[in-house]
Simulated scan of single mutants.
Amino acid sequence: MASLRVARRMFCAAAETAAAAPAAPAAPASSSRWERVKNSKAGVWCRSLVSDYKEACREIVLGAWGRPAKATVYLTLMGGASACVYTNPDQSSFEAALLERSNQLGLLSPWIRNATSDGHIQNLVKLRNEGRLQHASLGLLSLVYWANYDTDSALYEAQCSNLSMPWLEFHQRVLDVGFGSRWWILDSKMRDYDVNEDEFKNLPAHMQVSSPPSVQEVEKNERLHKESWLALKVEDEVKEAHVVDRKEEKVSEEQTEPAKEEQT
């Protein structure tokens, strides 16, 4: 009952206020609707938000105009950070790179594979098959590390948070770092993957190190290689045969002359 009385009093007061107010000129329906939207809470909030952003942009432009060096440094850092985020490799890219490196080693004989490259790739493949190879994205870069158990495993040791990996040991479990669309540790391990260093460990020290050939030697080898593919002419073969015959005749004459002198 009390609520009904309060509501009745409110309606009566509103009716009296409307009757006492002077009649205003009728405005168009579209303008009145737009005025109501502008004066509403949402409209006031949107106008204040646009005004704040406008003022912030104006201050940014004025600050950049007053300090161009500082603005250039900030823009460079923001652009570099955006590029790093855009080129941050994900887990699928690491698996694709691992598969490609594994295929490269698979095309080689086990006797000529680099032991470091082969061991690193075999370890990564083993962890991936066991589901223990995990990926963590840090925004600017990504990390690949190994875990004790598969995340989908239902073992108590894998699900208990108290038995999870301690954070102090995380740096020891990192296997690769992804930055700029590259996996740096994987690329460094695959350097000279087709050179088995164990084959040369018993050689002398001066034979274990080879210097790159000079420009003249490279040009000479290329020239000889091109000449080896040229066909021999018949005239050249005949001339070479005549030269050989003449040399043989001279040698035979030189051998017979001392014998004649001894007989005389």
Rank of each mutant, 00 (worst) to 15 (best):
A2T: 02
L4P: 01
L4T: 01
R5W: 02
V6N: 04
A7T: 02
A7P: 01
A7H: 04
F11M: 10
A13M: 10
A15G: 03
A15Q: 05
E16W: 03
T17N: 14
A18P: 06
A21G: 02
P22F: 07
P22S: 13
A27T: 14
S30I: 12
R33S: 13
E35L: 09
V37R: 11
N39V: 01
S40N: 11
K41F: 06
A42V: 06
G43N: 09
G43V: 11
W45F: 11
C46I: 13
C46H: 09
R47G: 05
S51K: 14
S51I: 08
Y53V: 13
A56H: 09
A56D: 15
E59A: 07
I60V: 12
W65N: 04
W65I: 04
A71R: 00
A71D: 08
V73K: 10
Y74R: 13
T76H: 11
T76N: 14
G80I: 09
A83F: 05
V85T: 08
T87A: 02
P89W: 00
S92R: 10
S93C: 01
F94P: 00
A96W: 00
G106R: 13
L107W: 07
L108G: 03
P110C: 06
I112N: 12
N114H: 06
N114I: 07
N114A: 08
A115W: 03
A115V: 13
A115N: 10
T116K: 14
T116A: 11
S117D: 00
S117P: 02
D118M: 05
G119I: 03
H120T: 01
I121A: 01
Q122L: 07
L124H: 01
L124M: 06
G131P: 06
H135F: 15
A136I: 11
L138T: 10
L138W: 07
G139I: 03
L140T: 09
V144C: 02
D150K: 08
D152R: 15
L155W: 02
E157C: 03
C160G: 07
N162I: 09
S164Q: 14
S164W: 07
M165F: 07
P166I: 06
L168M: 09
L168P: 03
F170E: 07
F170P: 06
H171V: 13
V174A: 06
V174C: 03
V174H: 00
D176N: 00
F179Q: 08
G180E: 01
G180I: 01
K189C: 05
K189R: 13
D194G: 10
V195G: 05
E197G: 08
E197H: 15
E199Y: 04
E199T: 11
F200R: 09
L203H: 07
L203W: 09
P204C: 00
M207D: 06
V209H: 15
S211R: 07
P213T: 04
P213D: 02
E217T: 14
E217K: 13
V218C: 14
N221L: 15
E227H: 04
E227C: 04
W229L: 14
E235H: 08
E237H: 03
E237L: 14
E240H: 08
V243E: 15
D245T: 04
R246V: 08
K250H: 02
V251T: 13
S252Y: 01
E254M: 10
T256C: 01
E257S: 08
A259D: 12
K260D: 12
K260R: 11
T264Q: 14
T264K: 12
